[in-house]
Design a protein around this nucleic acid. Structure first.
Length: 559
DNA sequence: GGGCCGTACTG
DNA sequence: CAGTAC
DNA sequence: GCCC
């Protein structure tokens, strides 16, 4: 019946061996949005989900009137002090840097900046990162926020000889004031701050990312430990200055002792022991390889390992029949799915989806969300949101669209199709009953289809010279009334989205998800999008309605 | 010391 | 229900 | 691992 569910169950012959060097490519921090979308973002139809106009939103009104941040040369200059952790902990407690006198373990001069990239072994970071490193620690968006200039500006000046060795504490205390915390970082909610893809601390973040990944794979703590790392990373990612000291780390939200510790180690030695262990851990390598199979996550990865399997070939040769249908697809297109998708291809694919949607019914609006909208030059998959101003036009259309696309060979497999929404069609929009149902068709969830895509034309006229890599495409159908919520819900990094929900719950007393905003108390649906007549405008209205300052999608890169 | 986003699908 | 994905 |  289904044209597209014929998952070819034949086990792949001998899998093309993956470039081993790529094994860790997930670690790469996207480092190129600045060269960027100007050319792509021109309002070319309703295709492109990027809008330019908004100036970087930085709330200066909150800028505290802090004393000038003067000479912390001692900590940015060319001398290195190794201090005990006690010094740090005591300083945190005191709220100010204590004199180091009684805590110094070692002091010495360095002749060159430690370059962790060079020292840390191979392959983790790609060339772009080396380049961005070479470009220097420039904060992502020009203008210093503070007239005294951020630390990175000052640290360039010729370092004075460290003169804090034998100083009195009062002199010293003044000397180590940190640059003011950017106002946006005062919020514990990442949806309230700007988190660009670029970070002056990308190298440090890369270290944390490796630990996070390892925690996720080898601990059975429901991902709690990894979650902690994700939050810390999200905070640091939003910090526009080069971090220079443990306490500068520790004052960031979600970054406490542990992260100050890691930072100190990294800063002093140019590496982090735990990271090095992880990198040489064979078990981690296997787990990572398994984890990169679509529909295999940490539990299954560990399970595979426990069965004695060590790489993908073991999975294929020893466990093919035990795999779920989706895992089989994941294995089959292992290399394809790991491959990133360039923006122009994302656009081409999206345009085809839109065309088919409009074939089913004229007048669909679309916005490309996901990594594309966050400005990534290479995307992991294609996510599009479709909506139609006519109330009930979105009913059951996913199936229709997917069917047609499959018939024409654009779609080769369907991973999941969720029709919960169309199924229960008339349900009221309030999840706690009562109240008006806003007449007629209400939606509790979105219809969506996760499918495997190919270039149908190329498939029909194969060209031996051209590959036809399969792509994962997520097609989401949203009812018009709440399409702004859908766009917002699909255009941010994971932490951005989690914090958005948390913020809504704790601060605004509402429940946000991609199907709408509802009052927590009685479940009544709140229409925040009234009056907007395109998807991006609707998204803006949701920001306003939630009392949030606008953030460009490129500033929602919380990972 | 307890909680950490929330929901739908699949097996 | 557990596991996965978004 | 951090935060309330």
């Amino acid at each position: 019946m289904e044209a597209d569910d014929a998952v070819d169950n034949s086990r792949p012959k001998k899998r093309r061996r993956v470039e081993k060097g790529d094994a860790n490519e997930a670690i790469v921090i996207e480092s190129s949005t600045e060269s960027e979308p100007e050319s792509l973002s021109s309002p070319r139809s309703n295709l492109i989900g990027t809008t330019r106009p908004n100036p970087p939103a930085i709330n200066l009104s909150l800028t505290p009137e802090l004393p000038p941040a003067p000479e912390y040369d001692d900590f940015t200059g060319d001398s290195i002090k190794v201090l005990t952790l006690e010094w740090y902990l005591d300083s945190v407690k005191a709220g100010v840097l204590l004199p180091t006198k009684n805590y110094v373990v070692f002091e010495g001069r360095i002749t060159g900046k430690p370059n962790p990239l060079i020292q840390s072994p191979r392959k983790i970071l790609r060339r772009e990162n080396l380049i961005s490193q070479a470009k220097g620690d420039t904060p992502p968006r020009g203008q210093p926020l503070y007239k005294h200039g951020p630390r990175w500006a000052i640290s360039k000046s010729p370092a004075q000889p460290p003169r804090l060795m034998h100083q009195t504490s009062s002199e010293h205390d003044r000397a180590v004031a940190l640059p003011p915390l950017p106002p946006s970082l005062c919020s514990i909610y990442s949806c309230q701050r700007s988190t660009p893809a670029q970070s002056p601390n990308a190298d440090f973040i890369a270290q944390l990312y490796i630990i996070k990944h390892a925690r996720k794979l080898d601990r059975d703590d429901r991902g709690i430990s990894a979650l902690a790392y994700s939050k810390a990373i999200a905070s640091i990612q939003a910090y526009p200055y080069t971090l220079t000291s443990p306490e500068e780390v520790a004052r960031l939200p979600n970054c406490a002792e542990r992260y100050a510790e890691i930072f100190q180690e990294w800063k002093e030695t140019g590496r982090v022991q735990e990271v090095q262990q992880i990198e040489t851990d064979e078990r981690m390598k296997s787990l990572t390889e398994f984890y990169e199979i679509y529909d295999v996550a940490e539990k299954t990865a560990r399970q595979f390992y426990a069965r004695g399997w060590r790489d993908l070939d073991d999975v294929i040769s020893q466990g093919w029949d035990t795999l779920t249908p989706n895992q089989q697809i994941g294995v089959k297109f292992y290399d394809d799915f790991k491959e990133k998708i360039p923006r122009d291809e994302v656009e081409r694919i999206a345009a085809i989806v839109l065309r088919y949607a409009n074939q089913v019914r004229e007048g669909f609006h679309m916005v490309i969300v996901g990594g594309y909208r966050k400005g990534k030059t290479m995307c992991g998959d294609v996510d599009v949101i479709l909506s139609h101003p006519d109330e009930d036009a979105t009913d059951h259309v996913v199936e229709q669209i997917v069917w047609n696309l499959a018939e024409d060979q654009w779609i080769t497999h369907r991973l999941t199709v969720s029709t919960a929404n169309s199924e229960r069609g008339q349900q009221t929009i309030n999840w706690r009953g009562g109240m008006s149902k806003t007449r007629g068709r209400g939606f509790c969830t979105l219809d969506k289809a996760l499918v495997v895509w190919q270039d149908a034309e190329l498939a029909k006229n194969p060209d031996p010279g051209r590959r036809n890599p399969r792509r994962r495409v997520d097609i989401i159908l949203s009812p018009w009334k709440t399409a702004g919520c859908a766009v917002l819900g699909w255009s941010g990094g994971t932490m951005f989205e989690r914090d958005l929900r948390k913020y809504c719950r704790n601060v605004k007393g509402v429940k946000f998800d991609s199907t709408g905003v509802r009052r927590l108390s009685d479940g009544t649906w709140l229409d925040l999008e009234k009056g907007a007549n395109d998807l991006l405008e609707k998204e803006k209205k949701v920001f306003e309605g939630l009392g949030l300052e606008w953030r460009d999608p490129e500033e929602r890169c919380t990972g």
